[in-house]
Design a protein around this nucleic acid. Structure first.
Length: 93
DNA sequence: GCGATGACTCAAG
DNA sequence: CCTTGAGCCATCG
């Protein structure tokens, strides 16, 4: 089976969702880490795009932060909310 | 095809 | 701490 299929945003998004959904409580991953986890270490920005445009309540997108520990952003109430969620889960940074 | 944009990343000042 | 600059790559007009 040929799995070439060019860069399918949806396919990519699905993998991202799966990975993000699998992040344990109190644990976070950077965009680059997630991108690498789905097999696309160069697509850190695509991960971000997936979150921005296609986040789901099943996906704890708030567990996705920048590689340097910053929160980056959040489309569900702002970075403040994101930080609060992470702190509530045990992530002190 | 091009230029601008972006929840990115790394390095340097 | 913040700003540039460079790299990376999909998306949009």
């Amino acid at each position: 089976m040929v799995r070439r299929k060019l860069f399918n945003y949806e396919e990519f998004a699905e993998r991202v969702r799966a990975v993000v959904r699998a992040i344990p409580k109190g644990q976070v991953m950077s965009y680059g880490e997630v991108a690498t986890a789905v097999g696309a270490p160069r697509h850190s920005r695509m991960v971000a795009r997936v979150m921005t445009n296609n986040y789901l309540p099943d996906v704890p997108c708030h567990r996705i932060i920048k590689s340097d520990g910053s929160l980056g952003g959040y489309n569900r109430g702002g970075v403040e909310q994101k930080r609060a969620l992470l702190r509530a889960e045990g992530y002190t940074g």
